[in-house]
């Protein structure tokens, strides 16, 4: 997984050895592409900025690719557009979408498995920090790629938003004894029977509040509670 590589600017070695021979147009285009560093540039913008005809641009691009000097990259904002970048750069987050994107798509399976492992880790340790989770994952060897701190933070934040874990500040006492005071830590929300019963009236147990057609529903309308199929299903004893 190349998206896990640390540096966006690996040193260029080969170029110093032998500079390929380029035409003026190719040189112009290549310099433009390289000046955009890890953002890259869209063909449309190239034409506008260099004032070269389309055929020349396309031909030059082909040559540059064949000489292994530039590469085509997918952008998250606009997958249909042809986007190019100098070979030595790694696409920035703006282009790829972020840590969890590969080939312009969100890697949902990877995210979900990371979430599961984190939840398990926090549940078993009772209380854990971002570093704690990372350490746990490293030791468990579940993933063969390295998980970065930034990724872990994002995963923990989404778990908080999922209402699966709670973010706390360690007091240094009791269950927080293992964590230094003032550090951000996380505790699991599912503690079995310890937590009080959920107080929400749980409106969702009856059909109306999980129904997306509520705006169309009225006593005499096409959708009405007397004829509603969801009600029928719910009241089917």
């Amino acid at each position: 997984m190349n998206r896990l590589q640390e540096s966006a600017f690996p040193p260029r070695k080969r170029q110093k050895v032998s500079e390929p021979v380029l035409t003026d147009e190719e040189r112009l285009l290549f310099n433009l592409i390289r000046s955009r560093e890890n953002i890259g540039i869209w063909t449309g913008d190239m034409k506008r900025e260099t004032n070269l005809p389309t055929t020349v641009v396309n031909k030059s691009l082909k040559t540059l690719i064949s000489k292994n000097m530039i590469k085509e990259v997918t952008t998250i904002q606009n997958k249909g557009r042809k986007h190019y970048m100098a070979k030595e750069f790694m696409p920035s987050e703006e282009i790829t979408g972020g840590h969890f994107y590969s080939d312009g798509k969100l890697d949902i399976d990877y995210i979900n498995s990371l979430k599961d492992v984190c939840l398990k880790c926090i549940f078993m340790q009772k209380v854990s920090t971002c570093e704690g989770c990372l350490e746990w994952i490293k030791r468990s060897g579940v993933f063969n790629t390295e998980v970065t701190t930034k990724q872990m933070e994002e995963i923990l934040q989404t778990l908080v938003l999922d209402d699966e874990i709670t973010q706390m500040i360690s007091t240094g006492f009791g269950e927080f004894a293992s964590i230094s005071v003032g550090k951000t830590c996380y505790i699991s929300k599912s503690k079995g029977g310890v937590r009080g019963e959920k107080k929400t009236a749980d409106l969702t147990s009856f059909p109306c509040f999980s129904c997306q057609r509520m705006t169309f529903c009225s006593p005499d309308g096409t959708i009405s509670p007397a004829t509603c199929v969801y009600y029928q299903k719910w009241l089917d004893f």
Partner: peptide, 28 residues
């Protein structure tokens, strides 16, 4: 807090977990 929880549970059930997460993020 109780009202928020009530609204969130509706969002979760009606629009799914992704919408729920975004909604919670915005209300936070």
């Amino acid at each position: 807090w109780a009202r928020n929880e009530e609204v969130e549970s509706i969002v979760l059930k009606r629009y799914g977990r992704d919408a729920y997460r975004m909604f919670r993020h915005l209300s936070k």
